[in-house]
């Protein structure tokens, strides 16, 4: 791939006018740059979390904090978050399939896979709502941390503050992604893209949705695994 790309940039005069130098639609390029800026926002949050964690002597054990599963009670570390992770991965896959169906002008396929993606996003939000409610019930919230450090010493509220802020910000992205996907579904059903002759809008919504999944990869690792 790299060889064809370099061969192309020397043979084809991309910057002589008459063609799009990046060979990408304007809206899609701007979506990429928006996502890049969003990556810095999330990066700043996660690095702030890391810095505070590095500057603190003790930290709560995530396997003690996140160990409940609805209907099963507690004592299941990592189980619920595994479910949430797989829900988001699968919804990302169905989004790719929706984009591909769009490439083939397959309206039925786009509708089907968009609906699955929306269901996945809603399921993830439901899981997060349950987890937040459960933690809140245990006394955890912004400014309140009932969990002691791993070494048994008293913990500060940094742990819960960062957890609720970062997962909340990510959850808000999932929520807006679901809204965007619902709008895409309505537009598809109204034949907007069919009349336009292409489904490139689905691609941009897809980029946003994959970014949400990408951020979860980092949030999931930083809060639950390490």
């Amino acid at each position: 791939m790299a060889t064809t790309a370099t061969a192309m940039s020397t043979d084809t005069k991309w910057w002589n006018g008459g063609k799009s130098p990046f060979n990408v639609e304007y809206g899609k390029l701007m979506m990429w740059y928006f996502l890049m800026s969003d990556a810095f926002t999330f990066g700043a949050f996660l690095i702030a979390y890391g810095t505070v964690r590095f500057s603190t002597n003790g930290w709560p054990d995530p396997n003690e904090v996140f160990q409940s599963f609805p209907g099963l009670g507690s004592g299941y570390p990592l189980l619920f978050v595994s479910l949430m992770t797989f829900i988001l991965i699968i919804s990302s896959v169905t989004m790719v399939l929706a984009v591909q169906a769009g490439h083939h002008m397959d309206k039925k396929g786009v509708v089907k896979y968009l609906i699955w993606t929306i269901i996945g996003g809603a399921a993830f939000l439901g899981c997060q709502a349950w987890e937040w409610a459960h933690l809140h019930h245990e006394g955890a919230w912004w400014g309140s941390n009932p969990f002691p450090n791993m070494d048994g010493s008293k913990a500060t509220t940094n742990f819960t503050n960062f957890f609720f802020t970062i997962t909340g910000f990510h959850g808000f992205h999932v929520f807006s992604g679901v809204i965007i996907n619902i709008i895409m579904l309505i537009m598809t059903l109204n034949n907007v893209f069919e009349k336009r002759g292409h489904y490139l809008m689905i691609e941009k919504a897809g980029l946003y949705w994959h970014f949400v999944d990408l951020v979860w990869v980092f949030v999931f690792t930083m809060f639950y695994l390490v």
Binding site: A5, S9, W14, F22, L29, H210
Partner: peptide
């Protein structure tokens, strides 16, 4: 894998990849 394949960045032009 998410960025390269699901977001198709691997299949874009090299110059565009570099700006990101």
């Amino acid at each position: 894998y998410i960025v390269a394949y699901f977001m198709h960045l691997k299949h874009e032009l090299k110059n565009m990849i570099m700006t990101i």
